[in-house]
Computed example of a mutant assay.
Amino acid sequence: MAPPKPGIIPLRPLQFGEILDGAFQTIRRNAAAMVGSALIFQAVSQVLLGFVSVAMLQTAESLDSVQSRAELNVIMGPLLGLMAGTLGIAVLTGFLGSVLQGVLVVPVSRSVLNRRTGFKQMWKLAAGRMWRLLGAASLLTFGGLLAIGAVVGIAVVLLMSMGPIAFAIVAPLWLGALAAYLWIALKLMFAPAAIVVERLGIYDGLLRSWQLTKNSWWRIFGITLVVNLMVGIIANVVQIPVSLAAGGIGSFVSPHADLASNSSALLLTTVISTVVGVLVGSVTFSFQTSVSALIYMDLRMRRDGLDVELMRLMETGGDADGVPGAPSGTAGVGPWPLHGPPWPSDGGQQPGPQQRGPWPQA
């Protein structure tokens, strides 16, 4: 008998095509909650980035009129400040994206049992985990910045002390650092989902993600890589005609190449590109987050027997207003109750395949 499929996916370990199909269905069924939230997030980040980009281009154009070292120093200060602002916006975007990833797992989890989730309901269900989500996002963001800063610092010291020959060391260093960053990032990718669904703390959520990805890293990497390539190609296909159209409109609005006309054309094209970027980014971000959440559900079905628990919820209709997948009787105390793991630790046997405990082995 085929496993039941009450919602977007069958209640069994998933295949790649089922993950993609489930992500599309989740967005279609919960468009207001998922695309609406992602639209707000993308609008804030794109508007901030657009303002900084326009100001940076206008400041850079003023370099043509520089005639002395003093004027150059006056212009370079704001230009460096705008460049730092761009970096800050990128960091803020990554931080907020990590938080929103944990929030959007709510409608994905509920859609598994064919439960629709509204915008207000989604944020209400995630509100109790918000401080832990913010803490985990801060820790992940700070750790990434610290790692990047350490690698850049080591590379600068080597180049300054050894000269051009240091490139023979810096290039492998950068490749090794990139590989380590990808490995750790994928190992911790499901921490926001675990914090929200399983009601874990910050440390337990990170540990839980690390355990779930054990022996599954390459599969997760392959799915994530293919999805990111798909999203990137679609976004570029949409942006190319928009950029050409925006350039044509800019040429029509400012046919004369004076500074005021160029500024007006630049502002117009930036607004058009920003609006389209926000719309495309909100859909692609929702899709990527849905895929990530479904991978998390798949890992739990493979390791925890979550499919059995979901079948039980489907039959009984229990916790109709909650988030499916939350452990019963463990309100955020960690990946197992405080008295220890759910199997005996004094020489007893751990659960075998016929005794599917609610948590994987450490």
Rank of each mutant, 00 (worst) to 15 (best):
201 G>W: 01
289 T>Y: 07
168 A>F: 15
284 T>C: 11
308 V>C: 05
97 G>C: 07
302 R>T: 12
32 A>G: 03
238 V>I: 15
153 G>D: 04
291 V>E: 02
200 L>A: 07
212 L>H: 10
323 V>Y: 02
48 L>C: 14
290 S>N: 11
20 L>T: 06
230 M>Q: 06
216 S>T: 12
188 L>F: 09
6 P>W: 02
22 G>R: 08
173 L>D: 09
46 Q>F: 09
191 A>M: 01
314 M>F: 09
197 V>R: 04
115 R>N: 03
34 M>W: 01
35 V>G: 01
98 S>T: 13
16 F>A: 14
340 G>M: 06
244 L>Q: 14
308 V>M: 05
222 G>K: 15
318 G>Y: 02
285 F>W: 09
265 A>N: 01
20 L>C: 09
110 R>G: 03
119 F>N: 08
359 W>H: 05
226 V>E: 00
286 S>V: 03
202 I>L: 13
303 R>I: 10
278 V>Q: 03
305 G>T: 03
159 L>D: 02
353 P>G: 10
153 G>T: 08
184 I>C: 14
354 Q>F: 14
19 I>S: 00
317 G>N: 11
222 G>A: 15
70 A>F: 10
107 P>H: 04
118 G>N: 12
8 I>C: 03
98 S>Y: 02
230 M>R: 04
285 F>G: 01
8 I>R: 00
233 I>D: 03
9 I>F: 00
46 Q>L: 07
115 R>M: 07
248 G>L: 11
192 P>T: 02
170 V>E: 08
28 R>P: 03
123 W>C: 09
61 E>K: 14
180 A>P: 07
140 L>C: 00
333 V>Q: 09
323 V>K: 02
